[in-house]
Write a protein that binds this DNA or RNA. Structure first.
Lengths: 377, 377
DNA sequence: CTTCTCCATGGAAACGATTCCATCATGATT
DNA sequence: AATCATGATGGAATCGTTTCCATGGAGAAG
C-alpha cells in the first residue's frame, strides 16, 4: 500500500519546480532538455497526476454523469454501452445512476452529481422540465437521450412559437434543440393548429437531445399494420413514451380511440397488467404497437396467457430491437432504434460542448419485419 | 449559472469560523445555539459541501467503481442495478466501466480509477490475477462479483494448500475469500487429488468475492438432465465460465468428453459460432448446458438454424434467469442466480469494509424448470 | 478565591494540482 | 555596446474542505 508520488516528488527528483512539471505534463512550454528529464523522472516514479488536485483547482470534475431509468432494460444497456465507449476513448470517467423512472430519485441523483461537481450529464429524463431547472441553472451541461422531459405546463400563456415548418431534420442536415425536436415530432402545434395535448404547451428547456425519429418509426409501423388490414390498432406505452403516443395518435389519425392507448407505470408487473387489461377490455383490437421492449415483453406474455396467438389473433410491433426479439416465436417485428449510437452521440455532444449552444441529433429508426405481424384475422 | 456557496460563505454569514461549520455539518461537537444557527444559515444559503474539497483533504474519493464486461448482457444489468441500489441508499456515487471482457481495457479502467482516487471497486474480472495486483497494492478495496480472476500460474511451485474439506459455505454459515471459494467449488484439488486444470494452481488473491454457488447449480442441472435420460451432455461457455466448466466436468464425472466442452470468446457472434459448431460436430449430443444467457441465446438461435427442435431434438438449460427466458418457446429452463442481490451484497461488502479482511459470500442458485428440457429422444 | 478541567471555538495547515506573475538568461536589434 | 523582446523557469496563490492545535471562558473542585 505504498502511497503514490505527487507532483512535488517529481519536481524534487528532476530538480525543477512544480510549475515546470505541471507544464511539461500538460503540454505547456518547456525546453527540450527539461521536458525530457521531467518525463523520464515521472515515468521512473510511475507518477500519475491525481485527478483530485486538478479537479479542485479547476472547480470541476472531469467526466460525465449518466442517468437511466433501468439497466435491466436492454435498450438502456445498449445506450450505456455507447456512452461508455465514447467516454473510454476520451479517457473520462462516467458516474452512473439508475432512477427507476422516479422523478424524485432523479432529483436526488442530480443533487449528488452537483455535490460531486460533475458538470456534464447525459440523461434519459423521468422528471418534468421543472426537475431539470436546478441542474441547468447550476451550470451543468445536459444532454437528453432517448426522450426529453415533459412539461407540466403550470401556466399556458406561452404562445406557439412559430418555428420554421421544417422537413425531417436528419443527421447531417443538422440537429435540434428540444424545441426543434418537439416541432419535428409534431408535438408542438403548427401555428394555426390546436395543441395535441398539454405537453404541447411546453416552454422547452434549452437542452440538446439525441433521440430516435419516433414519429417516422411509429408512422411506418402503423402504415405497415394498416397495409395488413388492421383497423383497430392499440398503443401500449410506458413512462416517457408520450412522444411515441402522440406520434401514434397522429399516425392513426382522428378520431383516436383513446381506449386503445394505454400506459403502464414502468415496472414489468405494471406493464403486464396494462397489456392484459388492454386485451381483455378490447377483444376487438387486432394489432398492438408496444412503445418499448419491456412493454413488448409484457404483451407477448399477456397474449399467451389469454390464449391469443401471435400473429394469428393479434399482431405485434415492438419498439427496440433487442437480441431476444429474434428468439421469440414467432420472432418479433420491431422498430429498431440505434441505442448504442444514441449513447455515443450523446456523449460526444456533452463532451465537446464548446460552451456555445449545441444542437441535438435525430437518429433514424428502421422497421425490421420478422414474424409477429400478419393479416387481420 | 450562479456559483455555489462555500463553507466560508456559511461561516461568515453565521458569524463563526469555518472549522465550526465543518464540525456542525459532520457531527462534531458544538453548542446547541451555534449548531442551530449554522444549520439555519446553511439551509438558507442552500449550501452543499463540495465533494472536491473533502476528497482532496482526505485523499480519497467516496463511492465505488464498478467494472462489468458488458451492460448489454442482462445479467450484468441486474448486477449493476443491485450495486446502484446499495450505493444510492448510502448516498455514494458509482463510477462505471465496461471492459468488453478485455483484460487490457480492464487494466486501463483500473488505472483510470486509481487516477480518480476511487479506492473501492466491485468487479466482474476479465483479466487474470496478475492484472489485479496493481489495484490491490495501490490500496484499493476490491470485491469480485460473479467470478474471480483465473491464475495463469506462471510458476507452479505452490504446493496444494490443504484447506479444510469444507461443506458448502452458504450465506450466514459464513463466507469465503477467493481461496475458500475455489476450494468450495472443487477447483482447488483435494490434498491427494490431481489438479483439474491450470487454474487450480492459483495462489489466490486475498480478495473477497460474491458469487453464486455454481457448483451446486451446475450439478443440479446435470442431474436433472441425467434424470431425463441424457447421456451426452455438452457445456457451452464463455469467457469467465471456467468455474462453471470445472463444475460441469465434475458433475458429469470422468471420463469427460472434452469435445463436449466448448467456449465462445464473448461476442454474440462468437457464441453463435461456438454453439453452431458444437451442434454440427457432435450430432449425437442430446442436451446442452449454457454457461450464461448470451450463450443460451446463441444455442437457441443455432438450434433453430439447424432445424433442431427444443426440447424434442435437444434439451437446453441456460444459466441466468433473464426476463426473456419465459418468452421463448418453449420457455427456457434456467439456473437462476440472484444477480441483483449479488450486486447489492458486493456493494455492501465494499462499503463497510472496516479495514479488516472481509469475507465473501456464496449465494444459492435455483433450477427453474420450464419447457426446454425433455426426455432423450 | 484559586486552580483545574473541559468544552466550544477559530486560525491555520494540509491535501495535490494549476496558473499567475515576477525573474532571469539569451539572443537579436539598433 | 546598450536595450529590447522572447522564452524558460520557479515561487506562491488558489481551489473547498477537514483537522490539528491553541485559546478562552465557564463551571467544578479544592
Amino acid at each position: 500500500m505504498e502511497k503514490r508520488a505527487t507532483i512535488k516528488d517529481v519536481a524534487v527528483a528532476a530538480g525543477v519546480g512544480v510549475a515546470t512539471v505541471s507544464r511539461v505534463l500538460s503540454g505547456g512550454s518547456a525546453s527540450p532538455a527539461t521536458r525530457e528529464r521531467v518525463l523520464a523522472v515521472a515515468a521512473q516514479l510511475d507518477y500519475r497526476p491525481s485527478a483530485l488536485g486538478r479537479n479542485l483547482r479547476q472547480r470541476r470534475t472531469g467526466g460525465m454523469g449518466l442517468l437511466v431509468p433501468d439497466l435491466t432494460d436492454t435498450f438502456y444497456g445498449q445506450l450505456a454501452e455507447g456512452v461508455l465507449a465514447c467516454a473510454r476513448s476520451a479517457g473520462e470517467p462516467v458516474v452512473l445512476g439508475s432512477t427507476g423512472g422516479d422523478p424524485e430519485q432523479e432529483a436526488d441523483m442530480i443533487g449528488m452529481l452537483l455535490e460531486q461537481s460533475v458538470d456534464r450529464l447525459i440523461a434519459v429524463p423521468s422528471g418534468d422540465a421543472e426537475t431539470w431547472v436546478p441542474a441547468i441553472r447550476a451550470g451543468m451541461t445536459v444532454v437528453f437521450a432517448d426522450r426529453f422531459p415533459v412539461e407540466p405546463s403550470p401556466e399556458p400563456p406561452a404562445g406557439p412559437t412559430a418555428g420554421p415548418a421544417a422537413g425531417p431534420v436528419h443527421e447531417g442536415s443538422g440537429a435540434a434543440s428540444v424545441s426543434d425536436l418537439m416541432a419535428l415530432d409534431g408535438i408542438a402545434p403548427a401555428p394555426q393548429a390546436r395543441p395535441l395535448d398539454a405537453a404541447s404547451q411546453a416552454r422547452p428547456l434549452d437542452v440538446p437531445a439525441v433521440v430516435a425519429d419516433d414519429r417516422a418509426g411509429i408512422r411506418t409501423a402503423v402504415r405497415y399494420l394498416r397495409g395488413l388490414g388492421h383497423k383497430r390498432i392499440a398503443f401500449l406505452g410506458g413512462p416517457g413514451h408520450d412522444r411515441r403516443a402522440a406520434a401514434f395518435r397522429e399516425a392513426v389519425g382522428a378520431p383516436v380511440d383513446e381506449e386503445l392507448v394505454v400506459f403502464g407505470t414502468g415496472s414489468r408487473d405494471s406493464a403486464y397488467a396494462a397489456a392484459s387489461g388492454l386485451f381483455q377490455s378490447r377483444p376487438d383490437l387486432s394489432a398492438v404497437v408496444a412503445g418499448g421492449n419491456v412493454l413488448g415483453e409484457a404483451a407477448v406474455l399477456a397474449a399467451r396467457e389469454l390464449d391469443l396467438r401471435v400473429p394469428k389473433d393479434v399482431s405485434l410491433v415492438m419498439y427496440d430491437d433487442v437480441p431476444w426479439a429474434e428468439l421469440c416465436s414467432p420472432p418479433l417485428t420491431v422498430i429498431a432504434q440505434p441505442g448504442r449510437d444514441m449513447g455515443y452521440r450523446a456523449a460526444e455532444l456533452v463532451l465537446r460542448t464548446g460552451g456555445r449552444k449545441q444542437r441535438g441529433v435525430v437518429l433514424p429508426t428502421e422497421l425490421i419485419i420478422r414474424g409477429s405481424c400478419g393479416p387481420r384475422r
